[in-house]
């Protein structure tokens, strides 16, 4: 009897341990695989050159630039909107009210909508109705909408983590609500909000579906010259290389190289977020 229980314990422990190891392994296998294939083409010139010879030679600079513009645009639009919404939801609105419950359900549902649906929405609204065409603007707005629920939740969590005693202390010396938020709550939650922003940047950079119909083209000679230009983008570039064109033996290695660049980008952003979080935990004494 005692023995059976002990064996169960050991068994369970090992199952848990194996799951954790499996996760680690799959992470490193993906990275290794990408590195082996991708390093064959990766070089400085791969990063700063334009594609040549019908996508079979050259670099990925236009796609890198396009992803940069799209991500930047999306964050510029989504960040203030998300922060304002989160501040309103956590600091101003009475959280038990029916309206607020509806808003919360809306945010949670939006977070679960498949990204291709955002792509369709962006195409119908930004490309067609607003007449932005397939452009950086339409793509950024579409990604921004996709990011909103993620950013709102991250910001709300950061705001919730600020102890109420700080707010009360601020009100007690005569601060207004906005002064309290601006001078106490936001500074205390800034690292948490920043972490959310960084993680959503990597999400924005990696998404294909939302920009597929709204912003990107597989191949363009011209670099974007305005927010109404169409662009190349890293994730879509991979997709294009693998599905179009006639010289797969030359295109597939470039796709791996592009994937490696994208993953390294996302990884370094996540790492930054982790470092910020560790710093924050060290400072935080409340």
């Amino acid at each position: 009897m005692v023995k059976a229980r002990a064996i169960k314990e050991i068994l369970l422990l090992n199952i848990l341990r194996l799951s954790a190891i499996a996760i680690m392994l799959s992470f490193f296998i993906i990275l290794y695989f990408l590195a082996v294939e991708g390093l064959k083409v990766l070089s400085i010139s791969f990063l700063i050159e334009r594609p040549r010879a019908g996508m079979t030679e050259g670099g990925i600079m236009p796609a890198l630039l396009g992803t940069f513009y799209l991500t930047l645009g999306a964050i510029i639009v989504a960040f203030p909107l998300a922060v304002f919404t989160a501040i309103y939801m956590t600091e101003y609105a009475y959280t038990q009210s029916k309206t607020m419950q509806a808003v919360r359900i809306a945010v949670n549902t939006l977070a679960g909508v498949p990204s291709v649906v955002y792509g369709l929405f962006g195409f119908a609204v930004f490309v067609k109705v607003f007449g932005f065409g397939v452009s950086i603007l339409a793509g950024s707005l579409t990604i921004a909408i996709l990011l909103l629920p993620i950013l709102i939740r991250a910001t709300q969590e950061a705001l919730f983590a600020v102890p109420n005693s700080f707010r009360e202390a601020s009100f007690a010396v005569g601060a207004t609500k906005w002064q309290t938020i601006r001078m106490v709550v936001l500074p205390a939650s800034a690292p948490g909000i920043l972490t959310g922003v960084i993680l959503s940047i990597s999400r924005a950079a990696g998404e294909t579906a939302p920009i597929m119909f709204t912003a990107v083209t597989f191949f363009t000679i011209a670099l974007p010259d305005s927010i109404f230009s169409e662009v190349m983008a890293l994730p879509y570039h991979i997709y294009g290389l693998m599905t179009e064109g006639a010289v797969p033996e030359k295109q597939v290695p470039i796709a791996y190289g592009t994937a490696l660049v994208l993953v390294l980008l996302v990884l370094s952003l996540s790492l930054t977020a982790i470092i910020i979080r560790i710093r924050l935990r060290k400072q935080k004494k409340w």
């Binding site: 102890p163 005693s165 700080f166 009360e168 202390a169 601020s170 007690a172 010396v173 005569g174 601060a175 207004t176 002064q179 001078m183 106490v184 500074p187 205390a188 400072q283 935080k284 004494k285 409340w286």
Partner: peptide
């Protein structure tokens, strides 16, 4: 308050706070 609740700021800024909001 019952539990000391200084702001996560410097000693200086903690006291300046009430004056700044005014």
């Amino acid at each position: 308050f019952q539990k000391p609740n200084p702001f996560p700021k410097s000693i200086y800024e903690n006291i300046a706070f009430g004056l700044r909001v005014r």
